[in-house]
């Protein structure tokens, strides 16, 4: 029974995340455009773009090897597995440790590892620059991430995201002060991990200022589509982590068609609200200089540690 339920969960969760992920990317662009007084792209623009890229052939440099050809697939697969760790609309019982929060973090690293090597493969200076910056940022945000995750494990007395969401959905009290503080930290992690302002500017068209996009500057056609899609999925699932832990209203605890439908609609609404918040946040601040970032991260780190200390001594 539980294995059938789990397989259904795999299908539903993957399908939902793939279907809704591009929406939020367009929405984010739209919000930013609106604040700048522009019209912005239509909400379905990212879907069109990915569909168009899938129809194009891939171009590879003669210097490149299998790494560049495999990287998009590995990255996509890693992010898709990571997506299984965050229940979007339905919480099943955990099977074989799926949902372990440490494994979740390291699956994101798996994707990043291949992406960074893909950036170095063609021998282009911009790719290397992107890889170098991305890996550096990932390294210095890691202490904050692990502290926040440890705080989550501490608050929910479990290592499993499924258990956490379940516990959060089961309690009547909406958001405890600790959870709100953790949510702020998770928000910072979301901004850093997905390369948003003030860390990275996804809107930039100048290769020298790119971080995340720089790594797959050499990718094209369907491989580029995979990279774009995986970035969108990563963005969605980090948002899902925040919304479903802090504001788990509507998430289905049992498997019924109606329950899932409601959960999907509610999730899209919740995530859209969060996307708008992120968009407004990004529009209100400027991109930080790269070497100023450590200061920002140190602040985030001490903020997260503070939460822990409050938790520990109360």
């Amino acid at each position: 029974m539980s294995s059938i339920e789990f397989i259904l969960y795999l299908v539903i969760n993957t399908a939902v995340v793939l279907l809704v992920a591009p929406l939020f990317m367009s929405l984010l662009k739209k919000v930013k455009a609106k604040t700048q007084g522009r019209q912005g792209p239509p909400l379905l623009q990212t879907y069109y773009m990915i569909a168009k890229l899938f129809q194009k052939e891939a171009i590879c440099s003669p210097n490149s090897s299998w790494i560049m050809r495999v990287a998009p697939y590995m990255n996509m697969a890693a992010i898709l597995i990571a997506a299984l760790f965050v229940p979007l609309v339905f919480v099943p019982g955990s099977v074989g440790g799926i949902g372990n929060i440490i494994l979740f973090l390291y699956l994101l690293t798996l994707g990043r590892f291949f992406m960074a090597l893909g950036g170095l493969d063609a021998g282009s200076a911009f790719g290397g620059m992107g890889s170098s910056r991305e890996m550096s940022i990932a390294a210095i945000i890691e202490p904050t991430t692990i502290i926040v995750f440890a705080a989550l494990a501490f608050a929910f007395k479990s290592l499993n995201i499924f258990d956490m969401v379940f516990a959060s959905a089961a309690t009547s009290v909406l958001a405890t002060p600790t959870l709100i503080l953790i949510a702020i930290s998770l928000f910072i992690i979301l901004i850093v991990e997905t390369g948003q302002v003030p860390v990275d500017n996804p809107e930039t068209h100048l290769e020298l200022t790119m971080i995340h996009e720089g790594m797959y500057l050499e990718q094209s056609g369907r491989n580029l589509a995979l990279m774009e899609l995986s970035s969108a999925v990563k963005f969605t699932l980090l948002m899902a982590l925040i919304t479903n832990l802090i504001f788990p209203i509507g998430i289905a605890l049992t498997l019924t068609v109606a329950g899932i439908m409601i959960a999907v609609v509610l999730f899209v609404i919740k995530a859209s609200v969060l996307t708008v918040i992120i968009g407004l946040f990004e529009s209100s601040i400027a991109k930080t200089r790269f070497f100023q970032l450590p200061n920002l991260f140190t602040m985030a780190f001490f903020f997260s540690t503070l939460i822990i200390i409050i938790e520990v001594f109360t």
């Binding site: 790494i67 170095l120 890996m135 202490p143 440890a150 540690t305």
Partner: peptide, 30 residues
């Protein structure tokens, strides 16, 4: 333990960066 955990996580992430660099410089590109 929290401080050590944070440093442990950083160690792990820096190692990833270090070996991306090693593999990338030794084997990839021209």
């Amino acid at each position: 333990l929290f401080v050590c955990l944070a440093l442990f996580a950083m160690t792990s992430a820096l190692t990833t960066s270090c070996f991306v660099k090693a593999f990338g410089t030794v084997f990839l590109g021209m």
